[in-house]
Design a protein around this nucleic acid. Structure first.
Length: 297
DNA sequence: ACCAGCTCCTGCTTGC
DNA sequence: TGCAAGCAGGAGCTGG
């Protein structure tokens, strides 16, 4: 499911209820997701107050007042939903309508965080992690030295903000023989891009996903860097893309999928002005690439 | 060092 | 209607 814009959307949704809350009880309903939970996972969390919720690449990071950081990754199909205490139906939407009628999906609710207001000890609600494919994971690590943690030590630049520009992209791509599609999916170069937004950025830039990364001109790199930042910013603004699994934490759909120009649009006319191409799909390093054979070089 | 391919898992969609 | 194959937003591991 989630690439950077979806994870950022989740962060924004969780932060009002998560930040400042005490984790009064944690239900860990199975021993592993993609990886085993750390030993004493629930013990280490119980009683801690979440001081901030941040994001790095596709990781969510909950800092706690005990000096630990809860690292959460949604994999392909992970999602959170919030049920606020004292709101109708337990807050948020009832389970039964959140994912599917009848909610066969409830068996995939793997972790439940029960929250309370630390000052009053009153219930604040719960946050539920659901993940049918279980490619997501959670772990704990000390905040001190977090940047040296294996998940983060080699992570590339964020495509948000203004760090990623043409000259930096040229530096990252120099000497690379991998196709642009693979290079942009490489989290050690740029962190947070996934299949959707790579396809979309390449189309905006008029570059073929098959083009060797090391062959970009400075002008092309300038354009691509700008288009990556733009498409990510627009997607965050739209609340991410809702295909199968992703929803905002209140159950609302993201709507960037309506702005896809190529992703999941095989056979559709190319939206580039004046281009008469038809969007094609092909497999590239095991993933679907969507592109217009006419306007993408 | 870099790169392509396979793999984990469940469930939805497609084609016969 | 049933059944099997194919495919899905990630990323760690293997082997070349």
């Amino acid at each position: 499911m989630p690439e950077l814009p979806e994870v950022e959307t989740v962060r924004k949704g969780l932060s009002p209820i998560f930040e400042g809350a005490r984790l009064i009880r944690i239900e860990q309903r199975r021993a592993d997701l993609r990886f085993p939970f750390p030993k004493d996972f629930t013990d280490q969390l119980t009683g801690a107050v979440v001081t901030s919720l941040s994001r790095r690449s596709k990781y969510l990071l909950a800092d706690m007042d005990n000096g630990l950081v809860l690292i959460m990754h949604l994999g392909m199909s992970g999602s959170f939903r919030v049920e606020e205490a004292g709101k109708k139906g337990g807050g948020g939407q009832p389970d039964a309508v959140f994912h599917h009628p009848k909610d066969k999906n409830a068996v995939h609710d793997h972790v439940v965080f029960h929250l309370e207001h630390p000052s009053t000890n009153r219930p604040r609600g719960k946050i539920i992690y659901n993940d049918p494919r279980r490619f997501g994971f959670m772990t704990l690590t000390p905040r001190a030295g977090l940047e040296d943690h294996p998940y983060f030590a080699e992570l590339g630049v964020e495509p948000t903000g203004n760090i990623l520009d043409g000259p930096l992209l040229m530096t990252l791509f120099t000497g690379r023989t991998a196709p642009l599609k693979s290079a942009l999916l490489n989290q050690k170069l740029i962190a947070g891009l996934g299949n959707i937004y790579v396809c979309e950025a390449l189309h905006r830039s008029g570059l073929s996903p098959l083009r060797k990364a090391g062959t970009l001109s400075q002008a092309e790199a300038d354009r691509l860097a700008g288009d990556i930042r733009q498409v990510i910013a627009e997607a965050i603004e739209a609340g991410g893309s809702s295909l199968r699994d992703h929803r905002q934490t209140d159950g609302e759909l993201g709507y960037f999928q309506h702005r896809f120009r190529v992703y999941d649009r095989e056979g559709a006319p190319c939206p580039t002005h004046g281009c008469n191409g038809v969007i094609e799909r092909f497999a590239q390093s095991g993933r679907s690439s969507f592109h217009c054979p006419l306007c993408q070089g």
